[in-house]
């Protein structure tokens, strides 16, 4: 790699960019849908929860149940909002961090591993919030959270974190070797 190359920012590959842009587009569609179908979503979630009183600990007393349902609906809505925000953020992070890796990490296999982990981890992580929201009416807040954690947040979020540390390590090494 020449000095001239290192001073020029290199774009990541098109599939990586496509995934990042798709996740940002998904965030925008998700945000708009949340507003457009707010009432329908809340009605569906409420109806689904009422059909599963044991799952949600409903006791048949309005003064008790309305708080349980309110908390679940707030968390259901929070999951959708957090998907919107994280998908926007992670899409941008994928573009920026893979660009840094593509430009500044010299070792081919190491660079490919960083790009792959950031792309897969970054794109998958926000979907955990969508999954959590979808699971709340069926499994409750905590059980839904545990499922989303082990199915999405920990593996994908972990991949993104490991990749970012690998990138940080590569950059630090480059600085030391200068």
């Amino acid at each position: 790699m020449t000095e001239a190359r290192s001073e020029t920012w290199l774009a990541p590959s098109v599939p990586v960019l496509l995934i990042a842009v798709l996740i940002i587009a998904g965030a925008e569609v998700g945000g708009a849908s949340m507003v457009k179908f707010k009432l329908e979503l809340a009605r569906w979630a409420r109806g689904t929860m009422l059909a599963r009183p044991d799952t949600h600990g409903l006791v048949g007393v309005r003064d008790v149940d309305e708080q349980i349902l309110d908390e679940a609906l707030v968390k259901f809505d929070a999951g959708l909002r957090l998907f919107h925000m994280h998908a926007e953020g992670m899409g941008t992070i994928i573009i920026v961090s893979t660009m840094v890796a593509t430009t500044l990490v010299r070792a081919g296999a190491f660079r490919r591993a960083i790009v792959l982990l950031i792309t897969v981890g970054g794109a998958g992580y926000p979907l955990g919030y969508l999954l959590w929201s979808a699971l709340i009416p069926f499994y409750g807040i905590e059980r839904g959270k545990t499922l989303a954690e082990w199915m999405v947040w920990i593996p994908f979020g972990g991949a993104a974190i490991v990749a970012l540390w690998m990138l940080a390590g590569a950059l630090a090494l480059r600085l030391v070797r200068r």
Partner: peptide, 22 residues
């Protein structure tokens, strides 16, 4: 080291809820 690096992935933000008046 891997576990230490990945641990923060379990500490995701899930929003807060405050009981409201009915």
């Amino acid at each position: 080291l891997l576990a230490a690096l990945v641990a923060p992935a379990a500490a995701h933000h899930v929003g807060t809820w405050t009981p409201r008046d009915n």
